[in-house]
Amino acid sequence: MPSHVKLDPADIRIGRCVAERRIQQGRTQAQLGTAIGVTFQQVQKYERGLNRIAASTLERIAAYLDCPVANLFGESEPNSNTASARAILKEWEKLRPDQAEAILRVARLLNAG
């Protein structure tokens, strides 16, 4: 990289967040690269902030690392239950309308008490 090219702080921050999340999950750069369709060398460049990550690639990274895209921008999850909430929403989408309404009534009763 030419010495006159200045790295963007946002690219560096996002790259660090990707690396931290990947390491937390015990995954290698090669595994991430294979999952998103790039080489491990490209993952290295992303993680160091040398190359910008396209939005579509960032979505694939977030899906592979099982986190919201916002987490890769350094934004923390609103609360520790976010992963649970995402899992519940996945299951919620499979329910029939009458089942969803029944569960909603139960949740409201639990929160009222």
Rank of each mutant, 00 (worst) to 15 (best):
M1Q: 06
M1H: 08
P2M: 14
H4P: 00
H4I: 10
V5I: 15
L7S: 14
D8E: 14
P9N: 11
A10I: 10
D11M: 13
I12Y: 12
I12A: 09
R13F: 03
R16I: 07
C17W: 04
V18T: 08
V18H: 04
A19E: 10
R21H: 05
R21K: 14
R21L: 14
R22K: 12
I23Q: 14
I23H: 13
Q24G: 12
Q25G: 05
Q25W: 02
Q25R: 14
G26F: 04
R27S: 12
T28C: 12
Q29T: 11
Q29Y: 07
Q29F: 07
A30M: 13
Q31F: 02
I36H: 01
I36C: 06
I36K: 03
G37Y: 04
G37K: 06
V38I: 15
T39H: 07
T39L: 03
T39P: 07
T39Y: 04
Q42C: 08
V43Y: 05
Q44K: 07
Q44W: 03
K45M: 13
K45R: 14
G49Q: 09
L50T: 13
L50E: 14
L50W: 11
N51W: 02
R52M: 10
A55T: 11
A55Y: 05
T57R: 15
R60A: 14
R60K: 15
A63P: 00
A63T: 09
A63Y: 03
L65V: 11
L65Q: 06
L65R: 04
D66P: 01
N71F: 06
L72E: 03
L72R: 02
E75G: 01
E75S: 07
P78C: 05
P78Y: 01
N79W: 03
S80V: 06
S80M: 06
S80D: 14
S80P: 00
N81R: 05
T82N: 00
A83S: 05
A83R: 06
S84P: 01
S84A: 12
S84K: 09
A85D: 03
A85C: 02
R86L: 09
R86A: 10
I88W: 03
I88Q: 06
L89M: 11
L89E: 08
E91W: 00
E91N: 00
W92D: 00
E93D: 05
E93P: 02
D98T: 07
D98R: 09
E101I: 07
A102S: 12
I103G: 00
L104V: 02
V106F: 09
A107F: 11
R108S: 13
R108D: 13
R108M: 13
R108F: 07
L110S: 04
N111F: 01
A112D: 11
G113H: 08
